[in-house]
């Protein structure tokens, strides 16, 4: 069976869950090969082997880290030329989508972004995407070249299947043309200690109704082990960081449970959350459009409802 390349999402060798998900998908399409960018592949190998990577292509080249996107696209191009894969799967991040875009041009291949399902079909690989703010789903295929597909997190449960994870070093010479945009500095953001927004099983978000005080939202989120999100109104007001924004111009999340507190539910916000499995809203305004989406809603003040719910959940647990 042909190889299916999976770009590994990792932080210094710590492999992220999305990689296990993509390797699981890759096994249904062919023989998974991981593509590892960086120097600490030995830290990653056990996990890559556990989820079925037969090979691990390793590109350890500082240029890929030091210049934006273009060198990564060249590195992926080199692996595609070497492996002639049946498909290339990448976790759907900003960076990866841009690298996939350049790879598509280089290899004259069709590109699909933000797939929520990837299957082997009669006409090759078939994907499903959620479009128009989650109001439609489309099924698509790639008709030219090697299918290049970016896949959203949490779309399949990772399942283990031991394989060899044989390391295959790939020597990549990054062209001068690809060194146009230098990453001159990196500033680490403060870690919240909470799950990542796009990967979390539960998300609790606050909006205009918080008036800038996210403490009841955060406390309730921590009680549930949830990530914290924010509406655009809350972000634009400077109450919460943009990296936590849920919506069309922020993150699109699809957790098991989404709690919207003090969020009216404008299309901008719905685009980021309406494919969540279960939705709860708390809002003072009974006319708020968010209530059209909910499985359970409370018309009331989040500053009394959330603390009471927090206490009740803690009590139920003890």
């Amino acid at each position: 069976m042909a190889e299916v390349l999976v770009l590994v999402d990792h932080a210094d060798g710590q492999v992220k869950k999305t990689t296990a998900e993509l390797l699981t998908i890759a096994r249904s399409l062919g023989t998974p090969s991981a593509v590892f960018i960086g120097g600490n592949v030995e830290a990653a190998r056990p996990r890559l082997a556990q989820f079925g990577a037969e090979k691990v292509y390793v590109i350890d080249n500082d240029d890929v880290e030091n210049y934006l996107v273009a060198p990564l696209a060249e590195a992926l191009h080199a692996v595609v030329q070497q492996a002639s894969p049946a498909a290339v799967l990448l976790p759907s991040t900003t960076h990866n989508k841009e690298a996939a875009a350049r790879l598509a041009i280089k290899t004259e291949s069709g590109l699909i972004t933000d797939a929520v399902a990837v299957e082997a079909g009669d006409a090759g690989v078939s994907t499903t995407q959620s479009v128009f703010a989650g109001s439609y789903t489309v099924k698509a295929t790639v008709t030219k070249g090697t299918p290049i597909i970016t896949v959203k997190p949490n779309v399949v449960p990772p399942s283990a299947s031991q394989a060899g994870a044989t390391v295959v070093p790939v020597d990549v010479q990054v062209s001068d043309a690809a060194k146009g945009a230098k990453i001159a500095g990196r500033e680490e953001k403060q870690k919240s200690g909470r799950p990542e927004l796009t990967e979390a099983a539960i998300v609790v978000s606050g909006g205009r109704g918080t008036g800038g005080d996210f403490s009841p939202v955060e406390t309730f989120a921590d009680t549930l082990g949830a990530a914290v999100g924010a509406s655009r109104a809350a972000v634009d007001a400077g109450w919460y960081p943009h990296s936590n924004q849920v919506g069309q111009t922020g993150k699109q999340v699809s957790p098991q449970l989404y709690v919207a507190a003090g969020i009216s539910g404008a299309i901008q916000h719905r685009a980021g959350m309406q494919t969540s499995k279960t939705i709860i809203a708390i809002n003072k305004d009974e006319e708020a459009p968010i209530f059209e989406l909910v499985d359970f809603g409370v018309v009331g003040d989040l500053f009394t409802v959330l603390p009471q719910a927090t206490e009740a959940v803690q009590k139920a647990r003890s």
């Binding site: 590109l111 479009v131 989650g134 499985d295």
Partner: peptide, 19 residues
């Protein structure tokens, strides 16, 4: 280089209990 094979409207969410 890609083809949309089909599209389907997601069924509207059914409103649950509001208290």
């Amino acid at each position: 280089w890609t083809k949309v094979e089909s599209f389907a409207q997601r069924p509207p969410r059914e409103q649950g209990e509001i208290v």
